[in-house]
């Protein structure tokens, strides 16, 4: 390899790493939306990143000032393809989305990517409004060290009933998040 080519490659690589580092989270979120569970997100993101690097020479932003935006959209096309083939490969042993559903979720997810940070902030502030015991309950289903079973044992309550309460709380949170976002939109 000549020096020129290796310099070129190095410059490309710096650019690629900068873009990927900046948009890692967006790509992860996008992939998670297209898979029925968080299993496989790592695999798909990894495959996506590898494919992006392989094809990076083909990535030609139309306008330099929108490079970041175009990169996400370009990477999401690759991610969509990878999420689809990951599910196709696992169709036999688990629940996976149909291709039509993946397509539609991908479209909706792409439109919602800009809102993700606002949504996250809204979830945090809504959660803070809950009393501590309810907060613990709703977090328990998402925590590695907690479980509904444990809370049921501690409090003597029926686990099934607790699980229903978790769903009520999650619905409350979602409604609260929606209100927050609507408020932000009208104020902003």
């Amino acid at each position: 390899m000549s020096n020129l080519r290796s310099d070129d490659r190095e410059q490309q690589y710096d650019e690629f790493v900068a873009l990927l580092a900046r948009h890692d989270l967006s790509i992860r979120r996008f992939v998670r939306f297209l898979l029925p569970s968080s299993d496989g997100v790592d695999d798909v993101v990894q495959e996506t990143a590898l494919e992006c690097w392989k094809k990076f020479a083909e990535f030609q932003p139309e306008r330099p000032d929108s490079t970041a935006d175009e990169f996400i959209r370009w990477a999401c096309v690759i991610a969509r393809y990878k999420a689809m083939s990951w599910q196709r490969d696992r169709k036999r042993d688990r629940l996976v989305f149909r291709e039509e559903v993946i397509d539609q979720l991908a479209q909706a997810a792409l439109e919602s990517l800009d809102r993700q940070d606002d949504e996250r902030r809204a979830v945090e502030s809504c959660l803070e409004q809950l009393p501590a015991d309810q907060r613990r309950l709703v977090l328990s289903v998402h925590s590695p060290s907690e479980s509904i079973a444990r809370i049921a044992k501690e409090t003597g309550e029926n686990a099934r009933r607790l699980y229903n309460r978790v769903n009520v709380l999650r619905t409350l949170l979602l409604n609260c998040v929606e209100k927050h976002l609507a408020g932000e939109a009208s104020h902003g």
Binding site: R29, R32, F33, S38, L105, A108, A109, S112, Q116, E119, R120, V123, E124, L127, V138, L139, S140, H142, S143, P144, S145, E146, R170, L173, L174, V177, E178
Partner: peptide, 18 residues
């Protein structure tokens, strides 16, 4: 999408509170 995103956020927060 909103519910999935919320559960991801809750997962992060649960991990943090641990």
């Amino acid at each position: 999408l909103r519910a999935v995103h919320m559960s991801g956020t809750l997962e992060d927060l649960a991990g943090e509170s641990v």
